[in-house]
Amino acid sequence: MPRPAADLRPAPLAAEPMLPRAFRVAARRRETHDVFTLELEPADAPGEAFAFEPGQFNMLYVLGAGEVPISISGDPTRPGRLMHTVRAVGGVTRLLEGLKKGDSLGVRGPYGAPWPVLDAEGRDVVVVAGGIGLAPLRPLICQVLARRDRFGRVSIVFGTRSPADILLAKDLERWRSKFDVDVLLTVDHAPPGWRGHVGVVTALLPRAAFDPANARAFVCGPEVMMRFTVQELAHRGLPAASVHVTMERNMKCAIGLCGHCQYGPEFVCKDGPVFRFDRIERIFGVREL
């Protein structure tokens, strides 16, 4: 059946929302044996700053291999190169690990709901990170410290597996050297010679000073770590509405269309990844949801 001429004039499609933009690796550095940081700039506009809010993420694409959602770890108060701190755990992240200065990759974003930093102004701030969970919290910490006078007491509680797994070590050192920030560090296990704390992150929480009636907690780490952290914070009197956590689910599109990141009624990509805890408290403990 021959098609009439009118059939050959379909309307052009609107812009494809899942189309990445070409970026290049401007710098890379190793954080630990399996964690690395990439600094990226647009291939067609090397000096262009990447605007984002703390807690947001990008989809990073390696040619032919696939895309992964990775949170942004840069300092939002000093706009510049896009920064991602990544743990090599899967096919695409291992390929990202192998990228060298000048190599190309695709980037789209930023996506997702940010940490509500402004909401914490005038209050004590408790940051609790587990492992690579420190990376999405780094922009928040940078923003709080850039306007330090606007906040009450600030505690950063960081737990990781071993001393060899301490990422962003220079940052931690810098934050620890400040008199108005309390940095509490613990490892799950340590070789002889480690003089720091050994134990789970919740064991350090009692040392974080905050007024439960006027504080905000920001928590990122494995689900089990967040579960015990939230319990401990509640035990200290901090209500669920004063706690923010980040959730992680499989993600293909990052723009609310593919259905993969559903977590009960929530789409982690657009309703999260940062959630005020009382919003998800009812489903947080349900297994395999």
Binding site: A11, P12, L13, P20, A43, D44, S104
Partner: peptide
């Protein structure tokens, strides 16, 4: 959805034009 080619200036992304 799209195709990508390695080119001199980096990666080139082309959206699927099929309407």
């Amino acid at each position: 959805l799209w195709s990508a080619d390695r080119a001199a200036g980096g990666l080139e992304f082309k959206p699927s034009a099929e309407a």
